[in-house]
Design a protein around this nucleic acid. Sequence first.
DNA 1: ACGAAATTAGCACAGTCGTGCTATCAACGA
DNA 2: TCGTTGATAGCACGACTGTGCTAATTTCGT
Lengths: 199, 199
Amino acid sequence: MPRVVDAEQRRQQLAEAVWRVIRRDGVTGASVRAVAREAGTSMGALRHWFATQDQLLSFAMTLVVERARDRITAVLRAGAPLRDQVLAVLEETLPLDDERRAEGEVWLALTARALVDADLAALRDRAATELSGLCAAVVDALAEAGELAEGVDAALEAERLYAVLDGLAVHAITRPSALPPARVREVLAAHLAELRDTR
Amino acid sequence: MPRVVDAEQRRQQLAEAVWRVIRRDGVTGASVRAVAREAGTSMGALRHWFATQDQLLSFAMTLVVERARDRITAVLRAGAPLRDQVLAVLEETLPLDDERRAEGEVWLALTARALVDADLAALRDRAATELSGLCAAVVDALAEAGELAEGVDAALEAERLYAVLDGLAVHAITRPSALPPARVREVLAAHLAELRDTR
DNA sequence: ACGAAATTAGCACAGTCGTGCTATCAACGA
DNA sequence: TCGTTGATAGCACGACTGTGCTAATTTCGT
């Protein structure tokens, strides 16, 4: 077998195999054997890169977060007008296409497991803090630009925006037919519009 | 062993054992043996009431939904003023105390499993339709009472309210320290207030 | 008090699980 | 070209899984 060019790249390949298995068979189905089979490799090879199953799942979740973060920073670099940029940034966290839908399903599955897995819970907390902070930053940016209605409690609005985001995400993931991407966009846009025009 | 007075009651006892195991060890830990041990009975007895594990988990989720529905109809029977009643009804779906928190944790765990379990998915869809309909009914009731701002898209507002609800639920369940019950109430109340006063 | 039915108990089977471990194979520096 | 290191392969072990199944026990109608 040819030596892998980049170790990190190999680990990502295996993590993506985890994603595929989780999407097909759930976290329950993400056994070491199943992931190795999905990745087209052996149990031994898998254990060479991840000593335990917990490490494997943790890395798979870390990768979900990193992918989303990368997309968001890419949008920020693009430097669109504030109102467009805000919408674009927030939409990167929603399951609006197949790629983000896959990440969302994995995120939901691992979030549930994090209720009883301390390592995953720590990862989830970091990610949640990050996303919560992003919502706060969005509200602050709108406020500074004078695009926010007066008398608005910024912290509370950030919390509400965060809830709308994850609520939409959960619904779009679990019931895509009842809440297609276009509808998700509509609701998010309406919420942002109200954030500006209200009171 | 004394004969159980009511068969349904016995099934609920066992389902509640499922809840306790899921809260402690996750859905993964909800094996037939573990549930039987938690319920203080035997595998055979458990299988007498639920032929398969899937039936057991399905019933446990059904019970979550029924408990919530019962609480909501109780609030509706109480017949408080509209604005108070709306808030009270919606709060019954949120994990604001230990009982509802437990239900929420089970709901989240089983929602995740429903991604790959057809039976659970059907249950989840029914429950989601119900809750989504409740949100629509709330918006309609406010509109009929003239408590809703003009020019508001009722269907879209129902969708947004539903997102806020489940977003708050997910956050309160996964990060209770970051979003304590009082804060959840605040955000929900603010959302309802804006629904009335806006534009 | 006796038989039928409801309920409980728990063994047996054929799997799958995570991980420890050794052996093999490929690649690269010397 | 040889030895070292990186990487893969897969067996072995003990524990756990869901379910089929039989036997024991308890309860209730009569």
